[in-house]
Design a protein around this nucleic acid. Structure first.
Length: 216
DNA sequence: CTAGTGATTCCCT
DNA sequence: GGGAATCACTAGC
């Protein structure tokens, strides 16, 4: 018998913990995006931890800037960045405030509002690909920089909120090197901080970071 | 399935 | 000015 997902919002205290504790605990949780077409909900299946200033792979490793400002703020808020000239990716900030740690949401299963998500993801060949990858997840949920700094733990009507869902037993959680991260050779050995649900079909393929030469 | 490459723009050095 | 926490597409196995 399959347990019904818990629709209770996650409290801010959930995020006010070390990022390596929060990241695997986010698997199986449900993020809800309110849109004019109705809610789109994603069950998280893959995440990556970024541990503030000590982490060479983190956007916060060179200090506070206008872009990463939200990472230095209170936990439970959403950090959205724009990358590769085209894409957005979203994170949830973890505690304590000022630590600048966050969890990148890398992939998930759309469990509500798939019709609305498909409108944003016309290249997806099937529903498993709707949110298979961090930029795909943000696109499917219509998330961009205008949502940077949104409080995912606020009560009342908010563009983004996160529900308890169904946590994943530790035996079903796998971890390994982060995907596509520059700034740390041998990153997999030192920072195996990508977590995913074992065998889940919506988990994105692993790709090592490859520095690209500028077109002449 | 894997591997290689162009797209496109913001941010920080 | 260089590079980026990526994706879509193609070729080949």
């Amino acid at each position: 018998m399959i347990a019904t997902p818990d629709r209770t919002p996650l409290p801010r205290t959930f995020f006010d913990r070390p990022v390596l504790e929060v990241a695997p605990d986010l698997l199986g949780r449900i993020l809800v995006r309110a849109t004019p077409d109705g809610p789109i909900a994603v069950r998280l299946t893959e995440v990556e931890a970024y541990d503030g200033g000590n982490d060479p792979g983190s956007h916060a490793c060179r200090g506070r800037t206008p872009r990463n400002d939200v990472m230095f703020g209170p936990p439970g808020h959403v950090y959205v960045y724009f990358t590769y000239g085209m894409w957005h990716c979203m994170n949830l900030v973890c505690g304590p405030a000022g630590r600048a740690s966050a969890v990148l949401l890398r992939a998930g299963e759309i469990v509500e509002g798939a019709e609305a998500a498909r409108l944003r993801r016309l290249s997806a060949r099937n529903d498993k690909e709707l949110a298979k990858g961090p930029a795909r997840l943000a696109t499917a949920l219509d998330v961009d920089r205008t949502l940077d700094g949104t409080d995912a733990c606020a009560s009342g009507e908010t563009p983004l909120r996160i529900l308890a869902g169904t946590p994943i037993a530790s035996g079903q959680v796998r971890n390994g090197p982060r995907t596509g991260v520059s700034g740390a050779g041998g990153d997999g050995e030192l920072h195996p901080w990508r977590y995913w649900i074992d065998g889940d079909p919506t988990v994105s393929p692993y790709r090592a970071h490859v520095p690209r030469r500028r077109r002449t």
